[in-house]
Amino acid sequence: MSYIQIRNLWKEYADQVVLERINARVNKGDFITIVGASGCGKTTFLKMLLGTESPSRGAILLEDAPIPDEPSQQRGIVFQRYSVFPHLTVLKNVMLARELEHSPLLGKLFGSARRTAKQEALAMLEKVGLTAAIKKYPHELSGGMQQRLAIAQSLIRKPAILLLDEPFGALDPGIRADMHKLVLELWKQHQLTIFMITHDLKEGFLLGTRLWVFDKPRHDPQAPGAFGARITYDIPVGQSDRSLYQKIDQQLQVTQELTMEGNAA
């Protein structure tokens, strides 16, 4: 039995097929990075895992039951932006999950329960290196700090699955390397199952346990929306070589150009 099963999954918007015939099995603890041309349906796929979009056909099963069709604490998410709450300080952003958990009526903790939640949040913030910024509001943080905050905030509720949609896309390479280390550490520590979208193929070859390439195997220049993307490669990370990297890179670029032409036409 696999942890997550994706069975003949299709997603269509009006007359546009975005994803078609996706089949895959994911084990607990897998760290899957997803690459693909812009607009090929990576975010759409993640939204179906999250439960904010529903499949047009097929199903995603989580432990053999259909995955819940609204967001839940089982599946944490870090978006590219807007992931943290602008009206809460760094510390309160992280404490929020605990407050929601233990105070259904007010969503706020007081006294010793509050102190416990604070200690926990402080420990989590230390792991992501934000101890010095706990009193700041999100708009006072740099992009990298905001994403670290978003990760800390997601992990404190201990989700089983973590979904990351180009979380480091806006960061410069030095900080990105730090963030990779952080995510790998947290992945091991919390035994997470991670799906991470990236537009950087190198990142995909470097991080995690599996690399999925989303690509359209067929193109119809007259009807760019007629065919959807599929998983064209499912490669164990670490066992791939330079030539494969170049091959995938090439194919993605071809798809990108074809898509652009399709859109222009």
């Binding site: 904010t52 967001p71 604490q73 599946r75 944490g76 932006r81 999950a97 969503g107 905030q153 509720r157």
Partner: peptide, 11 residues
């Protein structure tokens, strides 16, 4: 994103 995020935190 914020409303979704809150739900993933169990709200």
């Amino acid at each position: 994103e914020q409303l979704i995020k809150a739900q993933t935190l169990g709200a």
